[in-house]
């Protein structure tokens, strides 16, 4: 493991020991955060998957109704009916803190009627399709929020995992190695001083 490029002295040793304690504490905290994030992520991912599957089948039904309308009329007439919409959709975005990840929370307010066209030049199947689409919008937006949260949490998990790995496999072993090196160096210096002193003492005694 790569040793840090530091002067082997007692001051550096004590500084490194302090840093090692902080790194170990940080590693534990980040590891806990990562575990909690993964747990929350998996929960949301499971919910998101169920919701997406439900919505995809409902969307297929909506498109089927829309196709019925499309098949039975001139495409221009269908588009003409939808030129001016009567429905209004207000979207509010809030933020929620999940394990220090800011995930969006959308709320939607629907107003007006999606059926805003004359009945003589349009079809009943279009009413059915539009109502189905309108009913699906809040759930589609909820799915969007859920998937965005999953996305942000995945990025955060990846970031945390990198930090944990960096601490676990680079920083902490680096500190340990450097501390061991400085300790050895200091012990070596101490032994050298001791032997020098003994030698001097012996010379002095012989005279």
């Amino acid at each position: 493991m790569a040793r840090l490029n530091v002067n082997p002295n007692r001051m550096e040793l004590s500084r490194l020991k302090k840093r090692l304690v902080v790194a170990k504490r940080g590693h534990k905290l980040l590891k806990d955060k990562q575990d909690a994030l993964i747990k929350a992520f998996l929960e949301r991912a499971r919910e998101g998957k169920v919701l997406r599957e439900e919505l995809e089948s409902e969307l297929a039904e909506c498109y089927k109704s829309f196709l019925l309308a499309r098949a039975q009329t001139l495409p221009a007439m269908l588009e003409q009916a939808l030129m001016i919409s009567g429905a209004k959709c207000d979207l509010h975005v809030g933020m929620q803190n999940v394990m220090s990840v800011l995930v969006p929370v959308y709320s939607v307010e629907q107003g007006g009627s999606p059926v805003n066209y004359g009945l003589a030049t349009s079809l009943g199947s279009l009413d059915v399709a539009l109502e189905r689409f309108a009913a699906l919008i809040p759930r589609l937006i909820a799915l969007a929020a859920k998937e965005k949260a999953i996305n942000l949490m995945a990025v955060e998990i990846e970031k945390t995992r990198r930090r944990v790995n960096a601490l676990e496999h680079v920083l902490i072993p680096g500190f340990v190695e450097t501390i061991r090196y400085i300790t050895m160096k200091l012990d070596e210096q101490e032994r050298s001083t001791l032997s020098r002193l003994m030698k001097i003492k012996e010379i002095v005694r012989s005279h």
Binding site: L74, A76, M77, Q80, M83, I84, G118, A120, T121
Partner: peptide, 11 residues
């Protein structure tokens, strides 16, 4: 004809 009128009015 009425479809065309609707298109032009809405336009």
């Amino acid at each position: 004809d009425f479809h065309n009128v609707k298109v032009l009015m809405k336009s």
